[in-house]
Simulated assay, not measured.
Amino acid sequence: MSSKRLIHYGRVVVKIGTSSLIHPKTGKVNLLTIDRLAYTLSALNNQGVQVLLVSSGAIGVGLDRMHMQKRPAAIAEQQALAAIGQLELMNLYSQRFSDYGTQIGQLLLTHDTFDYPVSRQHVFDTIDALLAKNVIPVINENDSVATDEMDHHTTFGDNDQLAAIVATQVGADTLIVLSDIDGLYDRDPNKFSNAHLMTEVEHLSDKVLMGAGGSSTRFGTGGMVTKLRAAERMINSGGQMVLASGADPRVILRILAGERIGTWFGENVLEAVISGN
């Protein structure tokens, strides 16, 4: 079997989780990860690839900025942290992407945006306009207004779902989800030493879904269940999703070169080698 996959990509959505943007032990912002992410997406943008970034991290960065170690329980306090953290996060992104000569634009969305056809169309028209100007859209849920990610179960629930919705709506070929785990395992690798990494998943069985766990850090809101739901949305739309470690975002370049990294979700992910690779 080939060590590479057949990949066609023109539009790519990259989702990075809070666990990749925040040092788990200290709660401080991981500046190296942000810099490598900006470098990687700028490199793709320079190659003519249309890239969209869905970034979590507003509350995590807010916690760091306010020197807090524990996520508060009150919704209003979480929203206040999101308001502070989103500004700081975008400042960091703006600085790092500017270093690589790349322009970014921010879109803060709520589930209401997708509930109404007119507002939904306006959002995707805006995304198309940004991409046409070689601007990378940086998308997050508007946590200072919405409560979807804050202990409430509603339409989205998390940025994994937001990323999958955006990817399917803009016709992205691939969704790459960077997390604090390097792929989907057949059992919890933190509990079982013989856990096996599943490199390809063409469909999501009930067994796979039942074996997924929740969030692994105090900073994030998602978990494996939300990532599998995102993968299911991509598969149903005829696209593919890759789940990989976000420890070094430069892995995106290797993924798009077809290397066997992480877990690939989608039909026909085992096809031919890319010509010339």
Results as ranks from 00 to 15, higher is better:
59 I>K: 05
277 N>Q: 14
244 A>R: 10
154 T>Q: 14
4 K>A: 09
226 T>Q: 09
155 T>F: 13
95 Q>C: 14
178 L>S: 10
171 G>D: 01
210 M>C: 12
58 A>C: 07
217 T>L: 08
115 D>C: 13
227 K>Y: 07
218 R>T: 01
197 L>K: 14
179 S>Q: 08
196 H>T: 03
24 P>V: 00
15 K>V: 01
27 G>A: 05
219 F>E: 01
119 S>L: 01
57 G>S: 09
37 L>D: 02
31 L>T: 01
113 T>Q: 15
250 R>N: 08
189 P>R: 12
44 L>Y: 06
223 G>E: 05
261 I>N: 09
117 P>H: 13
14 V>A: 14
52 L>M: 05
65 R>K: 15
153 H>T: 00
265 F>Q: 05
184 L>F: 10
7 I>K: 13
38 A>C: 11
110 T>C: 12
214 G>L: 04
82 A>E: 02
31 L>A: 10
46 N>M: 10
84 I>S: 10
251 V>Q: 06
136 I>F: 12
61 V>F: 04
274 I>W: 05
66 M>C: 15
212 A>V: 02
117 P>L: 06
206 D>A: 15
161 Q>A: 06
139 I>F: 07
246 G>D: 03
35 D>Y: 02
74 A>K: 14
103 Q>C: 10
165 I>V: 11
186 D>H: 07
199 T>C: 11
216 S>Y: 04
187 R>T: 03
75 I>V: 08
216 S>H: 09
97 F>P: 09
31 L>C: 08
277 N>T: 01
139 I>A: 06
195 A>V: 00
219 F>G: 06
71 R>Y: 01
101 G>E: 01
250 R>L: 04
166 V>Y: 08
185 Y>W: 03
77 E>D: 13
204 L>M: 08
24 P>K: 08
9 Y>I: 00
150 M>H: 11
219 F>T: 01
58 A>S: 15
244 A>I: 01
104 I>N: 09
183 G>W: 03
249 P>I: 00
96 R>G: 04
2 S>L: 14
264 W>N: 06
143 D>N: 02
187 R>G: 06
37 L>E: 01
86 Q>D: 01
230 A>N: 11
59 I>N: 13
